[in-house]
Design a protein around this nucleic acid. Structure first.
Lengths: 261, 261
DNA sequence: TTCCTTGCTTGATATTGGTCAAGCCATCCA
DNA sequence: TGGATGGCTTGACCAATATCAAGCAAGGAA
């Protein structure tokens, strides 16, 4: 309900709204409300009807899918990110659950209003389509990553991506618990430990959440990162690139884009 | 260049154009041209700039991704399907290669014209956004399928999905070579053979491309199909459902929807 | 402090999936 | 008809990954 003007500005800066006319932005954010959730809150269960577009303003959110008491992480979000846009556009139920990993601040926009505005404004509709395209391509990358690479290779590429995102610093700091990271990378926590261990011969050293990349060249020779799989988005110098850039990466710790549902 | 009126009607019936105004349809299909390709033709390589939206009118197309001399199949398409919509919307390069599996007839629509029309017509833009949403959700299903299930389970669910698509008949007929199916399911051809063999204890019998589902209940008990993973779209009685329905499934043999890029 | 709890690691073992090599069986072609 | 070819299958083996169990270390609460 109460919303700081600064928050509204951050939403305004999202690629989705960047070029929207003032009245369009007003229409979509009109009935919005801001909510605070403690860590571990389930915002949305798989199969639930989706009535809102969510915008993560502070904290961290995990999107996960499940089958037969097994769960897997599909994406990890950091501010500022929108999520479950696809479900909202189709007015369908969610294919993934969403839960907070930390205490989080989340803005909820009316899905109904969003769809209504899309039908009225071609530019806004186009922006949504571009957003969806970027998210789709993020998932294509995720599938390729999962099907073409082994566990150690996925971890190595994750570390390289993080290094780029964190401004080529060394050591990098893992933005999430290792068990969550393991689920994102599609392996058991035990196996993630072993994968880290096997990377020590390539210069990687682990100290809690801090990971030293001793010899980047050696790690890259193993990882073989590829622009058509790994989205090595430049670090957040300014805010976010242009709309024509894909704004999403499946395994990011500083997503500046969004994820649909 | 030469295009039968019947072909144009089939394109018109796609969810993307179903509700478009006549002049919108004319604008988008204006500079289009129809081309015929032999089997095994590469239409598009990963990394190529995408200038056209493709519409498969006849034949079969495989979308694949590659890394380090390894390849994997991301989708198998049958008429009538559009593909690489996402790349067209973003005017970006392709994340997957596209090649014909059989002699195929393909309509190519100008990407430039499509984007121009989107900016002019909110309804068309909205239709594109809905299409993209459906495709995104198809990929979410694919990731869940890949990360949560083992090889035998993926095959079992594939068979059940095919049975639904083919009108609950028995035996079903595999719409593609087994080696291609193996790649789609994320396993080696050898392992697909063994997976089929291990399903024999659940009533499944294989005779070339014909697969008998002896005991559907037994197979389902193993497969545990789930509406949030497997898109059990009703068989193509009429043409295609409404636009609000997801129109894409990652592992279909009779896709009535589309795939982006 | 001491005792939990929690997240992580490590080792032993089982399961799954990949690779290599051989063989089978259709089809196609000379 | 013979012989190649290509797709599929099978077996033997190996690599990758999951599972189970135990232990460790840091942090929080009594």
């Amino acid at each position: 309900m109460t919303m700081r003007p600064a928050d509204l500005d951050r939403v305004r800066a999202l690629p989705l709204f960047e070029r929207a006319a003032p009245e369009v932005f007003r229409d979509v954010t009109g009935g919005a409300f801001l909510q605070r959730f403690p860590a571990g809150t389930t915002l949305l269960m798989e199969g639930d009807r989706v009535d809102f577009l969510y915008v993560l303003l502070d904290g961290a959110v995990e999107l996960q899918g499940s089958w037969k008491e097994k769960e897997t992480t599909l994406a990890l979000l950091r501010p500022v990110s929108t999520f479950i846009l696809a479900a909202v556009v189709l007015d369908a139920d969610a294919l993934m659950s969403a839960r907070t990993l930390e205490r989080s601040e989340i803005l909820m926009l009316s899905g109904e209003a969003l769809r209504r505005t899309m039908r009225q404004d071609a530019d806004f509709s186009f922006a949504v389509a571009q957003e969806l395209s970027g998210c789709y391509r993020g998932l294509v990358r995720a599938v390729k990553n999962q099907k073409l690479r082994g566990g150690v290779e996925r971890l190595a590429n994750y570390l390289i991506t993080q290094r780029v995102r964190q401004g080529m610093c060394d050591p990098i700091v893992l933005p999430h618990e290792k068990r969550v990271l393991a689920s994102l990378l599609g392996m058991s926590p035990e196996n993630l430990s072993r994968a880290f261990a096997s990377l020590s011969s390539y210069g990687v050293s682990v100290q809690g959440a801090e990971v030293g990349i001793g010899r980047p060249e050696a790690l890259e020779r193993l990882a073989r990162p590829h622009p058509l799989i790994d989205n090595h988005m430049p670090p957040p110098t300014e805010n976010i690139g242009k709309a024509e850039r894909e704004r999403w990466s499946s395994q990011t710790g500083r997503t500046c884009g969004s994820v649909l549902g």
